[in-house]
């Protein structure tokens, strides 16, 4: 995630990811490994209008963001893509905080230091 992508008005993962991608990631952090079909079945309960194509595109976007990785696996039903998480939720949160703080430190060093020290007190 790039610092400029941080959405101040959104809560939780939706502050750093588009809403549906955030929902998929929340689920993926719970299950760790899943196929797009399994994610589709899960998300369909919350968004009945969603289509397989949407889930497939979003999961592959999450792969491009480096949050998921894709591998070929032969399982029940045949050969398919299996998606797995590349880092835990905590590791991802750490990366987000680091990226934003790095950006603040390089642009507003004094103010950032002052604010952090005020927070500590």
């Amino acid at each position: 995630m790039k610092p400029h992508e941080f959405k101040l008005t959104e809560e939780g993962m939706k502050a750093v990811l588009p809403p549906l991608e955030a929902e998929i990631m929340e689920h993926m952090w719970k299950v760790k490994v899943a196929t797009a079909g399994q994610v589709y079945e899960w998300i369909r309960e919350r968004h009945p209008e969603i289509r397989r194509s949407t889930v497939s595109i979003l999961m592959n976007r999450l792969c491009e963001r480096g949050l998921l990785k894709r591998s070929v696996e032969t399982g029940r039903g045949g050969m398919r893509y299996v998606y797995s998480i590349t880092s835990t939720r905590e590791e991802f949160e750490e990366k987000v905080v680091k990226s934003i703080l790095d950006a603040l430190m390089s642009n507003f060093r004094e103010a950032t230091y002052a604010y952090i020290s005020k927070m500590k007190k």
């Binding site: 497939s56 070929v72 050969m79 398919r80």
Partner: peptide, 9 residues
Amino acid sequence: SLGLFEVLD
């Protein structure tokens, strides 16, 4: 392609 089976039944 394997992507076909993700999108189609």
